[in-house]
């Protein structure tokens, strides 16, 4: 028998199997916590920080990522407070300023309430979410790609940037990549990137009907919170 614990997420009392993460439980119960680097059945890095929640312990709340937080008996989680929404918006803003040419990232930004981007746009084709790295190593045991370098020089690459002998040509890395979904209007020209925001009009509707997800058709492989 799997031992269960009871925790509260946004006021709802939820029964969850021990060992699962708060994010998994929330998704299972239809509570949409935005996330990017989390992929079901792969390990969690806590890299994108979008899935932050407030974890209330002894009356003090601590901001932490829900993907790396295991459920515990009596746990109190708040996923949608003013504070969290503000922080999440700032993180999504950083992401979309980095990679406006991804529909997935654009959608995340809108969903997190980004209305204006205060930084100059860059046109990177990777946000280092590490979905590809983990699927390659954990699902296929191939380890053909990995993180190389550190800090601003960090990138996903093969050893010595040469074609890897370990690669099985499965293509799962590409399937899972949030950058492969181009914006509806096609790729934005360098120097002319903008915050799309076209789905924003549909946001209100979505917020009031939490069991539906009409705007978040991110394509195969990218699963948003409400699938």
């Amino acid at each position: 028998m799997i031992p269960y614990v009871t925790l509260s997420i946004d006021g709802a009392l939820i029964k969850a199997a021990k060992g699962t993460s708060v994010l998994d439980v929330a998704i299972e119960y239809g509570i949409c916590i935005p996330h990017l680097c989390h992929v079901p059945n792969l390990s969690d890095l806590g890299a994108c920080r979008l899935c932050i929640v407030e974890h209330v312990v002894n009356g003090r709340s601590k901001v932490t990522t829900s993907c790396t937080l295991r459920v515990r008996e009596g746990m109190v989680i708040r996923s949608n407070t003013e504070r969290i929404r503000h922080l999440r918006r700032n993180i999504a803003e950083l992401l979309v300023a980095q990679a406006p040419n991804s529909r997935a990232i654009q959608d995340i930004a809108v969903r997190c309430g980004v209305k204006k981007v205060r930084y100059p746009f860059r046109n990177e084709n990777c946000v280092l979410c590490g979905r590809c790295v983990r699927v390659c190593s954990e699902m296929w045991q191939a380890k053909a790609i990995g993180f190389v370098g550190r800090g601003k020089d960090r990138k996903v690459d093969t050893p010595f940037s040469q074609p890897s002998e370990a690669c099985k040509r499965c293509g799962t890395c590409i399937d899972l990549c949030p950058m492969t979904i181009t914006p509806c209007d096609g790729p934005m020209k360098p120097g002319e990137e903008y915050l799309c925001g076209k789905c924003e009009s549909q946001m209100m509707e979505a917020n009031s009907s939490p069991d539906q997800c009409i705007w978040c058709d991110l394509g195969e492989g990218f699963q948003c919170g409400r699938y």
């Binding site: 990995g146 190389v148 370098g149 093969t158 050893p159 010595f160 370990a166």
Partner: peptide, 11 residues
Amino acid sequence: PLTEVYGVASF
């Protein structure tokens, strides 16, 4: 794995 050695060497 080579990827890990390379990752450490470049980190």
